[in-house]
Each structure stands twice: as structure tokens, then as C-alpha cells.
Nucleic acid binder design. Structure first.
Lengths: 234, 234
DNA sequence: ATAATTTTCATACGTATGTATTAATAGCGC
DNA sequence: GCGCTATTAATACATACGTATGAAAATTAT
């Protein structure tokens, strides 16, 4: 119906990549359960049967759509860090952060809809992804905590692990909003925003370790905030 | 089956709050589309009809489950900030951050499963929530950007807006992992982790504004990262 | 050219979904 | 006792879901 002359595997893998691209976009927007195979196949202009033929199941399609960009991006994170450390010289926090955030950033600029899928998977993933994500992200975090521990000897490992988590939160918030960000819509370079992200994360990681007290608003305000917990609707 | 003697509205509103609690927990874990009304009613030990009787629709239930804690938490954020500013004295970044993060933290300690729902809604919300969230979060962000602009005159407003977004990312990552965090599982106070979060965010917001270049790894690494975008699976 | 293989397509199956309906009961205020 | 609201229960309905099947078509291999 759509093709002008004939139908068939003339386009070979074109249908699978159209399907993957559509899956990336719609899974990123609506989540795994938020979109069905029929809607997916329709938007990708692919037959429903072809979808299960190529990927076997919806879960497999989701995993493939996510992993095809996540795997290399993750691998690049580790490669950059290890390469930077290979020279034996001490790394600055800036360098570590750049290794950590730039692959995700580059991927996000080239494939904005992947960023939404990435953020979703790191913050609100479908349950069947938990194990695989834990495995993949775990080693990356571990390695970055180690690298940071070397250039931030003043910060103990446990707080540092928390800080790396917070840093990932900032990066993921950036990723989740890439498509909505003004620069992306006005075809203006996104790099300045990324550099702002890098500055934010670097400063956060370098924050004065514990000891330094964080002043609160005042006692009564703190009490009210605590009271909020028990009385949801005062 | 469960009640020993009789069934009926003896428990009055107990059924609606059981339903809300269950909805909060399961929507937070699986997302809006990830759990059905039947499973929800079953887990809440509530009749399916009662669910639609009280809330009319699944969407309405979702919105109520989210809003009952989000609204007061959000309101408390604004109240704390305005109260702190009312005295006319200049605010420190620490104070602003505390106003911003403590209500979400307090809510998360008292109701850990709400935190997951919150993070989900701020990073990967169902589409029908977009408008309401934009409205509610918009004014909060605006107000905090204004307050920070006053105590960080060196940072222009646009980068500051980005930084507030990054800060929210850190807070949301904290929220998304509250239940999984070691302190929460070992009944040990969570406050130190929150203070670490506050330190991270404060330092991030106070980062040296633009001008200061963020050094990259090196040229070849940057080129490889860029190449990643076009060739997903090398 | 013919056979083998891969890909597309339409359709079907069983189940699950959100919502609506109806009747029956139980508590509460008057 | 009598309404009124809350709750359970049992279905019902139309639609949507993921997946399976089998024939047709196109491509590739021989």
C-alpha cells in the first residue's frame, strides 16, 4: 500500500531500523506500558507481524531499542575514563565529569528521543529492566567513584557514592528535557547548556565534605516541614 | 474474608485511604500504565466497583494519589521560601536550597513510596499530567530562580534556570532511590544523605559562572565521543 | 530457473483492560 | 424507622493487548 511498486525485503533492514527508531521515540515518550505493539507498528509503517518476527516479543524490542545506544554510550564512558587514567597523571574533577557526561550528551544531541528513554530507564525503569540496569550501571558508577576518590581524597567513599548518584540525577534531568530545551527547538547550539551542566556537577562533586554544617531556615520552619509528613492535607 | 465479623462502611474512609496508599505505591513502582485497576483494588483489598465509585476513573485516582502529597509539599516549598524572604534579610544559597529540598525530603521519609511517584512524575510523567505539572512546577521554579538570582548576582538568569533544573534532577534521583538507599533499609537516619544532597546542590548552584572554561579530556577523545552519535554500533 | 529462505501481511486467539450497571448490605443522622 | 451514603459483589461490554499462525510475496542461493 505504501511502497509504490512492490512489497518485500527490498528495503531489508530499513523496516527494522524504522521500527527501532519509532520504539525509541514512543517508549521514551510513553514508557514500556504506555504504548502498544499496534500503535508502534502503525507509526513505524511496519506490519504488526513483522515486529514480532524481527524481535520476538515486545520486551525484546524494548531492550534492543534501549541497548543499541545505551551500550555504546556506556562503553564510551568507561573507555574515556580508562584512557584518561592510563597516562598515569592525576585527573581533575573536570576531566572525570567530562568523561562521564559527554557520551550521554553526544548521544542526546544526535538522538534526542533516546535521551528521554535513557532518563526513564535510569529513574523509572520497567521492572524487567532492573537486573540488567543494575549490572550495567553498577560497574560504571563504581569505576567513577574510584576515579573521583583519587582526585577528591577529602571526601569519604560513601558520601562520594551518593554524590555520583546526584550527579547522574542532574545529567538525567538534562537528558529528560533535551527535546524541550530552548536551544534544541531554535536550532541553536546546545553546548553552552551542557557546559553549565558540567560546571554544576563538578562544583557539586567538589563540595566541602561533611564537617561543614548546612544551615537550616529556622527551627519553626523545620518543624512545620516535618509535620507535613503525618498530616498530608491540613 | 478478611474482617472477622461483618463487612460494611464501619471503616468509613479507611477504604479510600487504603486505595490511595496502594495507588501511590503501585503507580510509583510501575507507572500509570504499568498497573491495572483490578490489581490495584486487589492489593488494596477494596472492591473494584468501590474504586471507580470513589474516584470515577483511573486517571482521577492517579491524580489524587499524586496530588494529595505533592500539593502540600509544593505549597510548603513556597511557604518556606516566602517566609524566609519576608524578614527582608539576604538569604544564603544554603537557606534557599533547604527550603527547596526539605519538604520533598520530609515527605519522602514519611512516605517513601511517594518519592518514587514524585520522581516519576517530574522526569517521566504520563502525558495527561504534562499540563498540570508544568503549571504547578513552573511557578515554583520561577520563584526559586528569582530567590537565587538575588543571592547569586554573578550568575545570569538563563544559566540559573538550567542550574535549578539540574538541582531538581539531583533531588529527584535522591527521591527515586530513597527506598533502595542503605540507611532506609537499616533503619538508620537518612538525614546525613540528605545533607550530602544539600551540600551537592548548594555547591552546584554556586559554581563559577560561565567564563571559566571547563577543560575537556582531549581532542581525540572528544572526536570519538562525537562519532558515537552517527555510528550506534561500531 | 528452480528451490530455499527470508520477510510481509492479514487474521485469529485468548486474555486483560477501563468503565458501567445492578442488586444487596451495612452504618449513620434524623 | 427512614433516608443517605458507603461498600461489596457479580457481571457485562466494548476495546485493546501481546502473541501465534499460515499463506503470499520477494529475495537469495544453487
Amino acid at each position: 500500500m505504501k511502497r509504490s511498486k512492490v512489497r518485500g525485503p527490498a528495503d531489508a533492514h530499513a523496516t527494522t531500523s524504522r521500527l527501532l527508531d519509532t520504539a525509541e521515540r514512543l517508549f521514551g515518550k510513553h514508557g514500556y506500558d504506555g504504548i502498544g505493539m499496534r500503535a508502534l507498528a502503525l507509526k513505524a509503517r511496519v506490519n504488526l507481524g513483522a515486529a514480532t518476527y524481527h524481535y520476538g516479543s515486545k520486551k525484546a524490542l524494548y531492550i534492543e531499542a534501549f541497548m543499541r545506544r545505551f551500550r555504546p554510550s556506556n562503553a564510551e564512558q568507561l573507555r574515556l575514563l580508562r584512557q584518561a587514567q592510563a597516562h598515569g597523571r592525576a585527573l581533575s574533577v573536570d576531566e572525570v565529569v567530562d568523561c562521564m557526561a559527554r557520551p550521554a550528551y553526544a548521544m542526546g544531541v544526535a538522538h534526542p528521543s533516546f535521551s528521554a528513554l535513557l532518563a526513564r530507564n535510569l529513574i523509572a525503569p520497567p521492572v524487567f529492566m532492573h537486573a540488567a540496569l543494575q549490572r550495567e550501571v553498577g560497574v560504571t558508577v563504581q569505576e567513577y567513584v574510584g576515579a573521583l576518590h583519587r582526585c577528591l581524597p577529602g571526601v569519604p567513599e560513601e558520601p562520594l557514592r551518593a554524590r555520583v548518584m546526584f550527579a547522574m540525577g542532574s545529567v538525567m534531568m538534562f537528558c529528560a528535557n533535551i527535546a524541550r530545551l530552548p536551544p534544541m527547538r531554535r536550532r541553536v547550539p546546545l553546548e553552552p547548556v551542557f557546559q553549565e551542566l558540567a560546571r554544576f556537577v563538578v562544583a557539586g562533586l567538589q563540595a566541602p565534605p561533611a564537617g561543614t554544617a548546612v544551615p537550616r531556615v529556622d527551627a519553626v520552619a523545620r518543624r512545620r516541614a516535618a509535620a507535613l509528613s503525618s498530616a498530608p492535607l491540613p
